[in-house]
Write a protein that binds this DNA or RNA. Structure first.
Lengths: 346, 346
DNA sequence: TATTGGCACTCATTAACAGAGAGTGCTAAT
DNA sequence: ATTAGCACTCTCTGTTAATGAGTGCCAATA
């Protein structure tokens, strides 16, 4: 569909624009990328490519700007050729081991936080990390804390150290002792398994011999369901401050788009889900995104492992981002995380 | 120090600027606020007031803009005269009772979140809520969750339902049973009291009969100290998105100032502390703030009560904010919170 | 002595205009 | 198929002029 030369021009224009931030003109292309041809030839090709929706112009005589379609071609070409591993990989490891205070260990939450911070620092874009599909993660412990009256605090600890908690009210008062008994029963069954596996059987088991507590059990179960299923992912992100410095985000509207994206989470959740099940790198460019409002942004997600859990790390940045660098940085971090995982288990 | 008329002019200029956003000229003042005098007279006064540092001009022939000093005079005058209670108070109550899903109750965290959201919605500024001085809050429950090996998850539940958790590593491996025993002992002593009261005695008590666990106890105590003392306040905030819409925040730099203020927290902590001990409304205007970078912002804090705990709610907004409205909204929310408190205990 | 009217002056803002520069599209020549 | 040449378009910058809001100052006034 594209000739060799056309492909070269597309790649050149995208590359030039990523590096310089300026629209690329025919002259620049002949000088820097496709030597031996005259600007006029390139112009003709460019005109064709514009018809094919790879380029656009801000005005009739400006240079060419790549469309999302062109970025897609560019990213695909990057992914095919082998990337040079991120050079500062050694720094990554150090980062992981350098304790952020006195406590050098830390559960999955701390790892995720460090990862996002690292991404922000290295890319100046917004870093994201997510632990997906809570229902699939082994339950470590469940606790009810009696807060007085019929008010109860539910705490769920998942394997890897994710902690969720939520307040709820029981249909009637109950004694702390009964509550403890209930927690013990639930723990006996649920601990070591994941919620999806036990949700069906848990209710009847917990109730055995405590039939008078039916209402309470039901409420408690519903609450756990809320915590683990409705909140399907746990997102960590940072760097919203950083992007304010980027030239691509000098418009308030764009910042707003990103902030609301982070707040909504549901669009991200879709992509994270895809990345997780396919277990492969995902790049979503501009209007390929689900949400209209972030059509000026690109999102990259990569599967990773943290504290024995599946996880996904990624980055949100401008359409015009250095995809090659971003991807190899993410790959470097995933590798560092992997290494850390292995070391832990030995 | 200021004549009656001068005071009137200062108030008029601030008021006019808050309402219109435009610098106030001498003519406007005579037309809208101080009738019966000619613009020339006002000009003379204004010139004097500019020398006294109440006004400044963007250029030699622009209208007058209020300085922080003028805002201070204005705010002081507002605080003296009685405010009309916030009319939409009924809406506030509804808000509190309207459940945000199916669960209508909720611990202090949910209350704080609702409060900040309410502030944002009503003022279009950044809403803040803080639970201060964790060391003073009664401890409800302490838990250790054994995460395998020597890795432990510490969970602390405070009265009102604040939950803190953190991972740490013990100096050597230990059995889950011993860990449970330790937790039980600590709970026996600490539960129902605050950390400041028990920190001294806790260590020796917990150790009695378990001398071989000295290292573990020490680590665990240090970890609790970290959680409760180093993190002296728990801040909730929202609305960073909203302010992007405000005309005062069209400059990226200003947004950045606010975001970093929210992230650092330590400047806010000082003010919250003051507000808490004095138990009174605090307004910090522009360069009265500790931090240089937020000299274009004002912060208002008001003491409040939530779930039996002392709390502080507040708002961060532009220098040019509607102080009167902001304050009465905050007062309205505090009143609604109070009412809710009373209802709970009956 | 406090107030006022009058006037010159300053500065921001806007529009209109011209020239330079970058880049294109088209056409005719190679 | 490629290229050189040229007209054309559009942005960007700087200049100029007109407008208008507002001040500062001074002399007149009550």
């Amino acid at each position: 569909m594209l000739t060799e030369r056309q492909l070269g021009i597309v790649l050149a224009v995208v590359y030039e624009y990523i590096k310089s931030g300026e629209p690329a003109g025919s002259r620049t292309i002949t000088k820097k990328y496709i030597k031996g041809l005259s600007p006029a030839t390139i112009r003709n090709e460019m005109s064709d490519l514009e018809d094919m929706d790879f380029f656009y112009q801000t005005h009739t005589s400006s240079g060419r700007l790549p469309t999302a379609k062109a970025y897609r071609v560019y990213v695909d070409s990057i992914m095919q050729r082998s990337r040079t591993p991120f050079m500062e990989a050694s720094m990554l490891e150090k980062e992981f081991y350098q304790p952020s205070g006195s406590r050098s260990t830390g559960g999955i939450e701390e790892v995720m936080e460090r990862v996002t911070n690292m991404i922000v620092r290295l890319t100046n874009c917004v870093g994201i990390a997510a632990v997906p599909a809570l229902g699939d993660i082994e339950i470590q412990r469940i606790d009810f804390v009696h807060m007085g009256g019929s008010s109860v605090l539910l705490i769920v600890v998942l394997k890897g150290g994710l902690v969720y908690h939520n307040h709820f009210t029981l249909p009637y008062r109950m004694s702390p002792n009964l509550l403890e008994e209930l927690a013990r029963r639930i723990n006996t069954i649920a601990s070591g398994r994941n919620w999806n596996d036990v949700r069906q059987v848990l209710y009847s088991y917990a109730l055995t011999g405590l039939e008078e507590m039916e209402g309470i059990c039901e409420t408690a179960m519903k609450e756990m369901e809320n915590l683990l299923i409705l909140k399907n992912y746990r997102f960590f992100s940072s760097g919203a401050q950083q992007i304010l410095k980027l030239p691509d985000f000098q418009e308030i509207g764009k910042i707003q788009a990103i902030l609301s994206l982070l707040e909504e989470e549901k669009y991200l959740a879709d992509m994270v889900e895809q990345c997780r099940v396919d277990n492969s790198l995902k790049v979503s460019i501009g209007n390929e995104n689900y949400s209209e409002q972030i059509k000026d942004n690109s999102i990259i997600f990569l599967p990773a492992k943290a504290c024995g859990q599946q996880a996904v790390i990624g980055i949100i940045g401008p359409l015009r981002m250095d995809y090659e660098r971003s991807i190899s940085i993410l790959e470097g971090i995933v590798a560092a995380m992997e290494e850390r995982e292995n070391e832990k288990t030995t």
